[in-house]
């Protein structure tokens, strides 16, 4: 588990908890009670205590989600989480290119 020890330094706040679902590899985010495929529905941890609670979830979810990790997110104008880095933007929205039949 990447940086999930209690004492570990957290990435910059605010944060979301994300990973890939074990069964199908889909990108998922923790929404407070379950995992969702939609970043804007993710629970946004804006303080350290909330982030630490998400960290516990990550540890407990290893049977469902692979390599769950906390990652810095932006807070959109609507208050919902949005990607803060291009890697997370691509994870959230898929490849930036046309592929398969649509290419």
């Amino acid at each position: 588990m990447r940086g999930m020890e209690k004492s570990s330094k957290l990435p910059k706040l605010p944060l979301v908890l994300t990973g890939n679902r074990l069964r199908d590899g889909d990108v998922v985010y923790f929404d407070g009670s379950d995992w969702t495929g939609d970043l804007s529905g993710a629970a946004l941890a804006e303080d350290e205590a909330t982030a630490r609670r998400l960290e516990t979830i990550a540890g407990d979810s290893a049977g469902v989600v692979v390599d769950a990790y906390l990652v810095t997110a932006a807070k959109g104008e609507d208050g919902r989480p949005a990607p803060a880095h291009y890697r997370e933007a691509i994870r959230a929205s898929g490849p930036t290119i046309d592929f398969g039949e649509t290419a």
Binding site: D24, D26, I90, R91
Partner: peptide, 8 residues
């Protein structure tokens, strides 16, 4: 079998 950004 790898796990990539969006899937296996």
């Amino acid at each position: 079998l790898y796990l990539q950004l969006h899937a296996y």
